[in-house]
């Protein structure tokens, strides 16, 4: 046959035996993600949808400035785009695994990397990195949009509201928390998709898990409503965006994000176990 090099040099083999398998897995999964055109589009889409939603909401908001008007939360309003942007990140997370099952390529992946939990961890690491970048850009865009547009919506300094600014501790927490929120949603979805394996079913289940509880909560009364909002991943997690005290707040900001973190941990653990015990 034509070109044929020998096996890797002995010193290379020894060096590579000492290096952990997971870092090679992370590089392999990164190479997979960056060589799919859909990855770039979905990340750009996340930023566009998040900032665009915030802009539309800000443009549509007209707060009456009367003395009895309910106090608004400008920071939370500016971060509303996350509600919708998370759906695009969720799709990216679903495709990371389900596209491989759909094509049958998962068998090639697991032949190259037979330690299955390492593969799941490598996917999680890359998804976290990409979501961090998209999340930082999207959140920055939202805050900028809020700062520029909300004064025109009756939420300016003239109306007794501060400009949206990271100099405020609560706003900084809401911003950082929103980025973390997106990352935890991505990990939660990665776990669900790994367990379900099918793209369409996974997307359906994820959207239902995210958006149904807030809708159901509107249909029931306290204390059921309160409990539902305390445990559902979206309502609990988004508590991290609240910067003004409000009777509608059912859970403290970091406690809410903690609930979402438990969802993500439970989802990834279940996925890891299923990935290990099932036939590929």
């Amino acid at each position: 046959m034509s070109t044929q090099t020998g096996p890797p040099r002995p010193h290379t083999v020894l060096r590579d035996e000492l290096r952990p398998a997971w870092s090679a897995a992370v590089r392999a999964e990164w190479t997979k993600l960056r060589t799919l055109p859909s990855t770039t589009w979905l990340l750009a889409g996340t930023v566009a949808v998040t900032v665009g939603t915030t802009a539309i909401i800000a443009a549509a908001t007209h707060t009456s400035t009367g003395p009895d008007a309910a106090r608004q939360d400008p920071t939370k309003l500016a971060l509303t785009g996350i509600d919708l942007g998370q759906a695009i990140i969720a799709v990216l997370a679903v495709l990371t695994v389900c596209e491989e099952y759909g094509a049958g390529m998962i068998r090639i992946t697991l032949t190259a990397m037979p330690r299955r939990t390492v593969v799941l961890a490598a996917k999680a690491v890359n998804l976290t990195g990409l979501t961090l970048i998209a999340g930082l850009v999207a959140v920055a865009g939202c805050l900028m949009t809020g700062r520029l547009m909300l004064p025109g919506a009756g939420l300016g300094t003239a109306d007794g509201y501060p400009l949206v600014s990271l100099a405020h501790t609560a706003t900084l927490r809401a911003a950082a928390g929103s980025v973390l929120y997106l990352i935890l949603i991505a990990l939660l979805v990665l776990g669900i998709a790994t367990a379900i394996r099918d793209t369409a079913v996974s997307v359906g289940v994820v959207l239902a898990l995210l958006y149904l509880p807030p809708l159901l909560a509107q249909a029931v009364s306290d204390p059921l409503r309160r409990h539902l909002e305390q445990i559902a991943p979206m309502t609990a997690g988004l508590a991290v965006q609240v910067t003004t005290s409000s009777p509608a707040q059912v859970i403290a900001p970091w406690a809410g994000l903690g609930i979402l973190a438990m969802w993500a941990a439970g989802s990834l653990t279940t996925a890891g176990v299923l990935l290990r015990i099932r036939d590929a």
Partner: peptide
Amino acid sequence: GALVEAAALQPSRTGRNHLLWLARSQRL
């Protein structure tokens, strides 16, 4: 070396990039 399910490729990735991620996974 294994050939299983030759048709099992993600359609939008090039053949070269398919081999590239496999090479990365083995530190080749």
